[in-house]
Design a protein around this nucleic acid. Structure first.
Lengths: 160, 160
DNA sequence: TTGACAAAGTTACATATGAAACTAATTTTA
DNA sequence: TAAAATTAGTTTCATATGTAACTTTGTCAA
């Protein structure tokens, strides 16, 4: 009757477990060593290569929402890794930059995270790495498309 | 100098973005339709195929910690999807089962999540699906190993 | 110009999540 | 067997994260 559902073989479950262990591993570099959260790390990583962005430009490049970015900016300012100016032309916009401290921390993090990334991928051949990225990309695009569909289905079905 | 770090090309970032969109997509089934959280869904999924487990047996099969399971059990009891008895031999242990309601909900969820899983993987050939699972598995095992290493390194380096 | 609408951020609220401390029951050990 | 250690599960505390409401500033149309 109840055709045994096997959680361990369920693709979304596998992906989440996979992602969790990868995230934890890399967070041990920027998290355990520098006390940075994912949002803070991402914000620094983006400003590290594109100085002087507004918050919404960071949103656009980081898969974070504006609330996360706003909070990351606040905390990074508080610890002195980031400074904020107001855009002269549009006073709603901020102009965000890493401070010298922030740049120094970021610069020292780069080789560390690259090292862990390299170790993570060590069990794979060059070709396999490319394949993994490509397969994830395909499924991700499909998920993105499905989200739209599911959302509109829901809208149709909604009561009231 | 600052050899541009490209977040979008950073493997752990890619994995997290990938995982987030997959999770959101599948959660639209059990979340939006039945108001279940990830922990609740996993708990039901495990009890759906293995009735009468203790909380720690669920922990062992679900990649959740005992706090998450404890909370999922509480909320599932509250909405009447799960019932708890105390183990006769070891009164610390619980004996958890889905109620009839819980079983009915779970049974109705199975085809829906299977359908979305199928659609997610549609862009991939059979062989590619197996490959994706295998590649994730390899990297995951490596991450697991690395976590141990990093943890012990940290212990060595600790101040005080 | 001014009133409606949009955009950039922030704040408030709700929920999720995990580590550590705690309680109760059981097992081990001296 | 009584004290010590272990196990199962819960609670507390701190932090994370997302939605919605809100503030400020800017744009566009009448």
């Amino acid at each position: 009757m109840s055709e045994a559902f096997n959680l361990a073989g369920f693709f979304p479950y596998q992906v989440r477990v996979f992602s969790t262990v990868i995230s934890e591993t890399i967070a041990q570099v920027y998290g355990a060593k520098y006390g940075l959260s994912v949002s803070e790390w991402r914000t620094m990583a983006i400003l590290g290569s594109h100085q002087a962005l507004s918050a919404s430009e960071i949103v656009a490049r980081s898969s974070m929402d504006k609330v996360s970015v706003s909070r990351a900016v606040q905390s990074l300012r508080k610890i002195g890794y980031l400074k904020r100016d107001i855009d002269g032309d549009d006073r709603r916009k901020s102009v965000l930059r890493l401070t010298e401290d922030g740049q120094a921390v970021f610069a020292s993090l780069i080789p560390l995270v690259r090292e862990v990334e390299k170790k993570l991928l060590e069990p794979l051949e060059k070709g396999e790495r490319a394949q993994l990225a490509q397969l994830m990309q395909k499924v991700q695009a499909q998920a993105f498309a499905l989200q739209g569909e599911l959302r509109s289905q829901e809208a149709e079905t909604q009561d009231t």
